[in-house]
Computed example of a mutant assay.
Amino acid sequence: MEIHQLKTFIAVACEGSITRASERLYLSQPAVSAHIKAIEDTLGLTLFARTPRGMTLTPDGERLLARAEQTLQAHRELIEEATRIRGQLSGRLRIGGGSNSGTDAVGRLLMRLSERYPEVEVDLEHGHSLDVLDGIRSGRLDAGFYNEPADPPEDMKTIQVGGFAIYLAAPAGLLPVSDEPDWQAMAELPWIYPTVGASCCGHAAESLFRRYQFRPRRTIGIDREKVTRSLIAGGVGIGLLHADTARQARQDGEVDVICQVGDEVRVMFAFLQSRAQDPLLIAAANLLEAA
């Protein structure tokens, strides 16, 4: 039985689906199915029940899942110890870069890793902050950069590498310039922002609504900032933009900036607390802290 087959077993157990496991592992669905069949044939056990809703662990599969996770952890620790013995840092580091999350910090880390540890290979995956955190927790990513609007998750070790403000923007000339925005009047306009509360702009919007005790009559859920900027500039409604985007849109005459919304959002580098002794992650963290 191969280690990659155990990884597939764990992924299917966690996702409950061949399709989602294949996306998580970047494997084809036939390859995932073949791994599961090979494990079941080797062990002489049926690990999953195939149902219309997906893959469900059998009692035998449930008993073996914990052992598989322990085996995978032992394999990881073996590789880490071998790396320490060699004294030469090498291996592959899978890093997630959240949208608009620490672009400069990502560049600095990649450059410094290349200079200091040329044997380390880096895979960079782009996605939203929630995608990055999910990837770290699932094991698809080793670490990543994400936007933190509140307190960092307890299961993550984090390093702040930057920060930015969020601004409420309106189509140029739509609203009168005022020191105190008319929130009730603006509640009648369409609001454009990510309606997922865990995103930084979604979190900022919900905080704003609670503070001024109103809710927009209509919201447009967009999680792409370029699209949000285009819709605001096009007169569709008002919305939330990160500081750099808001500043550039105002300079281009596309929007008026109404006010800052909430506190500064922190840009974090994160990895699991349970992997705090991983030599590759220690090296990456040290390079970022030194910068």
Rank of each mutant, 00 (worst) to 15 (best):
I3D: 08
F9Y: 03
F9E: 00
I10S: 06
I18G: 03
A21W: 00
R24K: 07
L25H: 03
S33H: 11
A34K: 06
H35Q: 10
I39G: 00
L45C: 10
F48A: 02
F48Q: 01
F48K: 01
A49V: 12
P59F: 01
D60A: 15
D60W: 04
R63Q: 09
L65R: 06
Q70M: 13
Q70E: 15
T71V: 11
L72H: 06
A74V: 07
A74E: 12
A74M: 09
H75N: 14
E77N: 10
I79Q: 15
E81M: 09
A82F: 13
R84K: 10
L89F: 06
L89I: 05
R92A: 12
G96A: 01
G98P: 03
G98S: 01
G98R: 00
T103L: 14
L109V: 03
R116I: 07
Y117F: 07
P118R: 05
V120C: 03
V120W: 02
E121M: 07
V122A: 01
G127T: 05
L130G: 10
D131Y: 09
L133G: 11
G135S: 03
P149W: 02
A150C: 11
D151S: 15
P153M: 14
K157L: 15
I159T: 08
Q160F: 09
P176D: 05
V177L: 14
S178N: 12
D182Y: 11
W183I: 12
T195Q: 13
G197Y: 09
A198K: 13
A198Y: 12
L208V: 04
Q213P: 07
R215D: 10
R217A: 13
T228C: 08
A233V: 11
G234L: 04
G234V: 04
V236S: 11
H242A: 14
H242V: 12
A243K: 08
Q248E: 13
R250H: 09
Q251F: 08
E254Q: 06
Q260P: 03
V261F: 00
F271Q: 02
F271Y: 03
L272I: 06
I282M: 08
